[in-house]
């Protein structure tokens, strides 16, 4: 069954401390995990509500993830020099497991 994914419009990412990030779907789909949530054939509730809650991410972390989504959308496939994506070292380990989970 082919994946049917509508990448128009926006979705909302919510952290465990209730920070909300409204991101264009196309941008957020850099994460395969999020993309799979919005596969209509699987019928997850996230796809209906356009809203994903991450109980193991706080606002700061989720903000960084959203920042990376935008960074990736902007520079992916660009020929020129790609600027460095800044990550605070203290966040690196946490972000690494998050990235592992989100498959970004």
């Amino acid at each position: 069954m082919a994946a049917i994914v509508d990448d128009q419009g926006v979705l909302t990412l919510v952290s465990n401390d209730d920070f909300q990030f409204v991101v264009p779907k196309r941008t957020a789909f850099a994460s395969k995990t999020i993309r799979n949530m919005f596969n209509k054939n699987t019928g997850y509730i996230e796809a209906k509500e356009n809203r994903v809650r991450f109980d193991d991410m706080n606002g700061v972390l989720l903000e960084k993830v959203c920042e990376y989504f935008c960074y990736k959308e902007k520079y992916n496939g660009s020929r020129g020099a790609v600027p460095e994506f800044k990550i605070p070292p203290e966040m690196a380990l946490e972000l690494m497991t998050t990235a592992d989970f989100l498959e970004v």
């Binding site: 990736k72 520079y75 994506f85 990550i87 592992d100």
Partner: peptide, 17 residues
């Protein structure tokens, strides 16, 4: 080339520190 995955970026950063 292009954009590295967030995971790779983090791994490199952890390795650096």
């Amino acid at each position: 080339g292009g954009v590295k995955s967030l995971q790779e970026l983090c791994i490199e950063l952890v390795a650096k520190h």
